[in-house]
Amino acid sequence: MVDATSRIVPPVRPEFELRDVADAQFGEVERPLSAFERVWNQTWVRRATIVVVLAAVWEIYGRTLNNPLIFPAFSDVAQAFWHDFAKGPLLSRMLTTLQVLLLGYAAGLSLAAVFTTLAVSTRFGNDLLSTLTAMFNPLPAIALLPLALLWFGLGIPSLVFVIIHSVLWAVALNTHTGFKSVSDTLRMAGQNYGLRGVSYVRKILIPAAFPSILAGLKIGWAFAWRTLIAAELVFGVSSRSGGLGWYIFENRNLLETANVFAGLLTVIVIGLVVEGVIFRAIEARTVRRWGMQR
């Protein structure tokens, strides 16, 4: 007997042709979204909701615990934040920190640009950057602080030094990887138009590697921020004009726990603003618009 499976034959069905396809009843072809759907589709609305819920949980927990020395409620922290921001030292501490941070970040980026330029244009530069990043990228910047203090003394130069260390390698590594992974076709297309040297790098390589470069900038920013706060906790630039880290440290010593939280909150808020507003805006305008990242 023949194996049953080898004799499976699909049924022969009648043919048909439809007229008036154009007039056929579709389900929903197009309809405006409801107001709720439209609001809920906004990323920031969903994220803000999460933040509000977290704050509410915090408030409830803080009140039931009722021990402001260990864990102040959200309202206490908000009050301390508001008070110190408007009248107290918080604003000036924040500005000091941001100033040092931007200085270090900018210096780190410039050095990274120099290193990457060397690395893409010469083989020696390539080897140099690869070796240096392999050596220094795993080294926590804060571990260099004692040495920095020895070299530059107590003050802004030491802070800038450790920030540069934390920014430089991360950014250079990402940018370099981005350049290396630009496809051959794009490279050839660029050269085909007669682009060479600096204009080739500027018009082809940088935009093509932009997703990696942006990722490097973000990582560099996060590293710099963390390093700085940690370094400030150890010593406060000079204690009179210290930054946010110093503010946190100082208030802990005074057992003003609500103010400690307010300082931490400031760190978080600045992080959120930079990541969620500045970098997001750059992303939306560049890599996401170009379909290089979703």
Partner: peptide, 11 residues
């Protein structure tokens, strides 16, 4: 005109 599809500048 290349064989590959990624020859246009995505930006």
């Amino acid at each position: 005109v290349f064989q590959e599809f990624d020859q246009l500048l995505p930006w």
